[in-house]
Design a protein around this nucleic acid. Structure first.
Length: 618
DNA sequence: CTGGGGATGGGGCCC
DNA sequence: CGGGCCCCATCCCCA
């Protein structure tokens, strides 16, 4: 039947040292890893999401489990893992993940070369003995001390989170480990509020189908996607870009059983938990904006791999490059109309940035971007739409945009965004009118209110900050100094909230729509709704939001994260309010009654729609 | 087939 | 920034 060698090839003992070289395929494991890494970078068959700090990584459970018993225990029951950010930063985890998939230690994007102390800490925490050993060797070779008290210092990507870190916290580090519905004390919060990296908005995707879109969408954050920085990385780290998702999408924790015990540090692991406690703060090792780009740089212009196996052809080179087909546009809602592409505006300074791929939502076409604006930030953040969209008519007549047209102007314009910029000030604006004829030269970041252009988002951000404050100041002055006139105006226009107004002064009045507010922050928030731009882009679909919270909520829907579970039926929801609503289904409570027919409803909105039936002529 | 109700998803926006 | 509520839209079921 089968000849000897062939039979041996499939012998379970194949691969043993005593087997002859012809008994095994030397490159088998390597090829396997290559394939797995390719799949990872594409999100293909990824079945687990790892949240670290403000980033989300995708991977394969099998691979993780095969690499670490800690991961093994984590992925056993959960698809979503949150790691202790005191022990591992997103940057470091990126390296680790690359290591797991490639066997190579790739340099991070940190200014300081690969920080083995940090890596060692993380490797110990994650129970990756080989990596830990490699780090130790490197440290020894470098003559550095890596004993307790030193490990986990700089490069951790984040300062030690006080001294409260304990083994227990590590044990409960993963996302679902919050039995009581509270999220792990650090993870979610950090994700919500990425310290010093507010601009990070890396992307991830929970669906395979969205993978391609994802890779395109993610990379706007770095501004290099179009160059293949993510998808065609040459060192296997490209996943960093497309697997990041700098948002707190976890919200509350699902009611899942307690996590299994966390990693226990092996005796020979010098990286003790306390080490990171004592480690010195990395001191803003992850600068905003730059960080997001750095991931791409990691993939795009890799340094030499650190070894284990030496440099090899990068599996990721096989990935879809800029020319990769952007088919399968991610549609986060099936009912959304096909996004349409707008013709590039002739003479526009952004014309060259036309991105090509047809009919995709903004942000989906980033792969086609071949250009960058200063600072490595995409000028548009919304793929080909970008600047083009800002001129004249709505560039992306997405249904939603149209639906939301009640706001009129706010939807008619699109803003670019630094892909991934979630920073409140990290928005840049485009004027809607007469934009075709306006040339801003290199000042691609334009403030709507004053039409000033800026060469970088940072400058625009700084400008916008003062801008709003100025306006606010003016408004406050107007509210108080214009005296009776302003007050009367308010009083008159406050028809609806007049009673409330009488009770509580609402001195902050919107200059556009007459609405008034009690505090300037709310007014500022409201005024954003009048902007032609929305500062918070979804990096997956490119949709823009006026409020970060709305955007993060939206992102949760992309990832299918539903933290709120019904105790009765197990159904899960993205919002607490939905759960509350849903619970009435079980309780039978129908608190909303139609005054016309006496019909009762569990939900107010259904009552409203019911009332509409009463009132509508048909 | 149609209309109404139940239930849910997503976005806007104020507090 | 999260909570809460409003709105619109949609799907499903059923009469």
């Amino acid at each position: 039947m089968v000849s000897g060698p062939l039979a041996l090839r499939w012998c379970p003992w194949a691969g043993r040292r005593d087997m002859g070289p012809d008994m095994e395929l030397p490159s088998h494991s390597k090829q396997l890893l290559l394939q797995l890494n390719q799949q990872r970078t594409k999100g293909f068959l990824c079945d687990v999401i790892i949240m670290v700090e403000n980033s989300v990584f995708r991977a394969h459970k099998n691979v993780l489990a095969a690499s670490s018993i800690y991961f093994k225990s984590l992925v056993l029951h959960d698809n979503l893992i949150s790691l202790d950010t005191d022990m591992v930063s997103s940057t470091v985890f990126q390296q680790i993940l690359d290591f797991i998939y490639t066997g190579k230690l790739l340099p991070s994007d940190q200014p300081a070369e690969p920080n083995f102390s940090t890596l060692l800490t993380a490797a110990s925490y994650l129970q990756l003995p080989e990596l830990a050993a490699l780090c130790r060797r490197k440290l020894k070779r470098a003559g550095k001390s890596f004993g307790p008290g030193r490990v986990g210092a700089a490069g951790m990507g984040r300062p030690p989170r006080s001294q409260r870190l304990s083994t227990a916290s590590v044990i409960q580090a993963r996302y679902p480990g919050l039995v009581d519905g509270r999220k792990t004390h650090h993870t979610s919060q950090e994700l919500t509020q990425p310290k010093g990296s507010d601009d990070e908005l890396f992307l991830g995707s929970s669906t395979q189908e969205s993978t391609h879109s994802l890779s395109r969408a993610v990379c706007p954050a770095s501004g290099e996607v179009g160059l293949g920085g993510c998808g065609s990385s040459t060192n296997g780290s490209s996943g960093g870009c497309e697997q990041e998702l700098g948002l707190d999408l976890s919200k509350k924790s699902p009611p899942l059983p307690p996590t299994t015990s966390g990693p226990h540090l092996t005796p020979d692991d010098p990286a003790q938990l306390s080490d990171s406690q004592h480690s010195s703060p990395p001191s803003a090792s992850v600068p905003p904006v730059a960080n997001s780009a750095s991931y791409t740089e990691l993939g795009g212009t890799p340094d030499e791999p650190m070894d284990l196996e030496g440099a090899e052809d990068n599996p990721l080179s096989l990935l879809e490059g800029p020319g990769g087909q952007p088919r399968k546009s991610l549609r986060h809602s099936a009912r959304k109309k096909e996004w349409s592409k707008k013709e590039p505006v002739s003479g526009s300074p952004f014309e060259r940035r036309e991105t090509g791929p047809k009919g995709a939502c903004p942000g989906e076409e980033v792969e086609g971007l071949g250009d960058r604006v200063p600072n490595g930030i995409l000028a548009t953040g919304v793929g080909g739409g970008g600047p083009n969209v800002a001129y004249g008519e709505p560039p992306y007549p997405c249904k939603e945009e149209e639906e939301n047209g009640k706001d009129g102007s706010e939807d008619s314009g699109q803003s670019g965004s630094e892909g991934g910029s979630g920073h409140a000030g990290a928005h840049y604006m485009y004027r809607q009118e007469g934009y075709e004829t306006v040339s801003y030269g290199d000042n691609l970041y334009v403030c709507i209110p004053c039409a000033k252009g800026f060469p970088s988002s940072e400058q625009l951000n700084a400008h916008v900050e003062t801008h709003t404050e100025e306006e606010l100041f003016i408004k406050e002055e107007g509210a108080y100094e214009t005296g009776s006139g302003g007050a009367e105006e308010e009083a008159e226009d406050l028809s609806a909230p007049s009673s409330a107004y009488a009770a509580e002064p609402r001195p902050f009045k919107c200059s556009v729509c007459e609405k008034t507010y009690k505090d300037p922050a709310t007014l500022r928030q409201h005024e954003k709704t009048h902007w032609l731009t929305r500062p918070f882009p979804c990096n997956i679909c490119g949709k823009m939001f006026t409020q970060r919270g709305t955007m993060t909520r939206h992102m949760r829907s992309h990832l299918g994260l539903k933290p709120f579970a019904c105790d009765e039926c197990g159904m899960r929801f993205t919002r607490q309010y939905r759960l509350t609503e849903h619970m009435r289904v079980h309780s039978g409570e129908k608190p909303y009654e139609c005054q016309l027919c006496g019909g009762k409803f569990t939900q107010q909105r259904n009552l409203i729609s019911h009332l509409r039936m009463h009132t509508s002529p048909s």
